[in-house]
Amino acid sequence: MAGFMIEDLESGKVRQFHWNEVEDLPCDGNATLLDVRTEGEYRRGHLNGFRNIPLDDLREHLDELERDKPIYVNCQTGLRSYLACRLLTQYGFSCSHLSGGYSFYQVVTQEQQTARSAYPCGMEKL
């Protein structure tokens, strides 16, 4: 699977965005933010503004998505969002998926928050 993902990224069939770009995603309705994890995973925590349509149900909800808006997709680790983007691009949507998924995003942002609280203003606590 990794080989297919790399080939698709290099050829431009699939695009991705990264954890540090999440806060800059358009939340004004100019894009669709989509979480393709299960409902249970979504309930346990999700990115702000992301709508939940599990990957297994995505084909049945294509008519609810706007083809003229870019779609940003996330899942737990990046595999399901990659698969969702492959599906969506086959149906004519412009799509990018979150590299590393929600779990990677959580780890990195929690580490940053911990570092900021431990060393405010970049200074080590004495």
Rank of each mutant, 00 (worst) to 15 (best):
M123S: 08
D35W: 10
E64N: 12
G92W: 00
Y82F: 14
S11W: 01
D28M: 05
D24G: 11
F104V: 11
Y105W: 14
T77Q: 10
L33P: 06
H97R: 00
D63F: 09
G92M: 02
G29R: 03
G12V: 00
V107Y: 14
E7I: 11
A2P: 04
N52S: 06
L87M: 08
R86F: 07
T77C: 06
D63S: 15
P54Q: 05
M5L: 07
I71F: 05
G100P: 02
R37L: 04
K125H: 14
L33R: 02
G45M: 03
G29N: 04
L98D: 05
G122F: 02
L88M: 02
E23N: 09
R44F: 08
F93V: 00
E60C: 09
F50G: 02
Q90D: 10
G78F: 03
V108Q: 11
P120V: 02
G100E: 04
H97D: 09
F17N: 01
T38V: 09
Q90Y: 08
L47M: 12
G78N: 06
M123N: 09
E39C: 03
W19T: 14
F4A: 13
G29Y: 08
N48Y: 05
D24A: 15
K13D: 10
L79H: 14
C75L: 06
T89P: 06
E60F: 15
V73K: 00
L88H: 01
L55K: 11
Q76C: 06
S11Q: 02
P26F: 07
V22Q: 04
D68S: 08
I53S: 06
G45K: 08
V22K: 04
D63L: 10
E111R: 15
N48G: 04
N30E: 13
V14A: 11
G45T: 04
L98I: 02
M5E: 13
K125G: 10
C121T: 04
R44D: 15
Y42N: 03
G3V: 06
R37T: 05
E41S: 07
T32N: 02
H61T: 06
R59T: 15
S94A: 11
V107R: 14
Y105K: 02
E124F: 04
F4N: 14
N20G: 03
D8E: 03
G49D: 11
S96Q: 06
Q112Y: 05
Y119C: 14
L79Q: 11
R86C: 12
L88C: 03
F104E: 12
E111C: 12
Q106T: 11
I53R: 04
S11I: 00
E21R: 04
N30W: 01
W19Y: 13
P26K: 09
L55S: 06
S117G: 06
M5H: 09
K125P: 15
S99K: 13
P26I: 04
P26E: 08
D8K: 02
F50N: 03
G12A: 00
L87H: 01
R37K: 01
H46C: 07
V22E: 04
D35I: 08
N74Q: 12
G122P: 07
T32L: 07
S99Q: 12
G101I: 01
I6T: 09
F17C: 02
I71D: 02
F93E: 00
Q110V: 10
L9C: 03
L58M: 10
G40S: 09
R15F: 10
R59L: 15
